[in-house]
Amino acid sequence: MSMCRVLVIEDEPSILKFLTQALLLTGFDVVAVTDGEAGLAEIRGETAFDVILLDLMMPVLSGWEVLARMENEGLLDEAPVIVVTASSQETDQRRARAMGAVDCLVKPFTVREMAICVRQVVGTAA
């Protein structure tokens, strides 16, 4: 089985670094971008992803807008989206799911929590 490829869209450099390292260490292939626009470009591109980790609170183009654009362009079928959020509010998580996200990772989380979540999503998708 080839390595799963994960797209990470996150504006915080430290968290991006952590996600990248954690995913690499747990056996994933990673493409990391720092804003929504670049993330959308990657999704539209040639490379296929098995899962997308999307931060919701980002300047300029927020995670919400990325989700909305993906739905408009029919990109949600390309790969399952896991949203990463600092909001522990139920409403935000429910809204994200309603907009097409398959799961939520609530900050802060450990490498194990992240890996379980990603593996579950990839497993379900497969």
């Binding site: 915080e12 430290s14 968290i15 670094k17 952590f18 996600l19 954690a22 600092a86 900050k107 802060p108 989380f109 450990t110 490498v111 992240m114």
Partner: peptide, 8 residues
Amino acid sequence: TPLTAILG
């Protein structure tokens, strides 16, 4: 945000 990086 910093807490996530620390815990991670």
